[in-house]
């Protein structure tokens, strides 16, 4: 499994470099991009697999992912508001980079299980996963402190970044010619949705970061099983 992981990574890199230079077997960005995203995802999943993790970790991942996806139902009355990005970022912030990535990726996969898988699935998994991982990175930097401002900035930023990653996929696969202008115009076209997403994230992060982080920290503390055996006869 270990070797498979690295072979995948090398393949992904190779296809990217060769594709960029126009000498890949498929000098076809539609296919290349799909391959790039899937192999990157597969690599990260295998990475997670190799690290292992007990029942608590699996249970936390499963529930956080389900909640990130189901949270949308809670906010159905408010257009454009969904907490998935926020959940992934906070999960990463408190529980670490890998967990953040997995929560984000699983939210995407899960939503699509119920709404229907599509070519967008790997890219959504990657985008949400990366948002979770970036939250993890932030958590690493600030250690145990809960600093609202950086989370808010990150969450807001990811509203746009998520859109741009999805645009990137769309642009690579379906827009020709591939140049800066066409990419920008795709981003302009999606700016309204991205802004809505970003503002929603901003609100979530500004008002919920502290309580949610505290809840997650309490939960993580329950993870740490402290066993003090005392044998007194």
């Amino acid at each position: 499994m270990r070797s498979l992981r690295y072979i995948l990574l090398v393949l992904a890199g190779l296809s990217f470099i060769l594709g960029a230079r126009g000498i890949s077997p498929f000098d076809n960005w539609s296919l290349n991009s799909l391959f790039l995203a899937s192999s990157l995802l597969a690599f990260l999943f295998l990475q997670f697999e190799a690290r292992g993790g007990g029942s608590r970790e699996i249970a936390a991942l499963g529930t956080l992912a389900a909640m990130g996806a189901a949270g949308r139902v809670l906010f159905a009355a408010i257009p454009g508001l969904q907490p998935a990005t926020f959940v992934a970022i906070l999960a990463g912030y408190v529980m670490g980079i890998e967990t953040g990535f997995m929560v984000g990726a699983l939210i995407a996969l899960l939503s699509n299980f119920f709404l229907g898988q599509g070519p967008w699935t790997p890219w959504q998994m990657l985008a949400w996963g990366l948002s979770g991982a970036s939250g993890g990175l932030l958590g690493k930097i600030f250690k145990e402190k809960i600093l609202i401002l950086p989370i808010v900035v990150l969450a807001f930023f990811w509203g746009y970044l998520f859109g741009w990653i999805m645009n990137f996929w769309f642009w690579l696969s379906f827009v020709r010619p591939l140049n800066f202008g066409t990419f920008i115009s795709a981003c302009v076209a999606s700016a309204w949705f991205d802004s809505l997403h970003a503002i929603g994230n901003l609100f979530f992060a500004a008002f919920l970061s502290r309580p949610v982080a505290i809840m997650l920290m309490r939960f993580r503390k329950r993870f740490q099983c402290v066993y003090l055996a005392e044998e007194e006869r």
Partner: peptide, 11 residues
């Protein structure tokens, strides 16, 4: 190929 993530996903 990824048992743990598939379990988390199933959950």
């Amino acid at each position: 190929f990824s048992l743990r993530s598939s379990l988390a996903m199933a959950l």
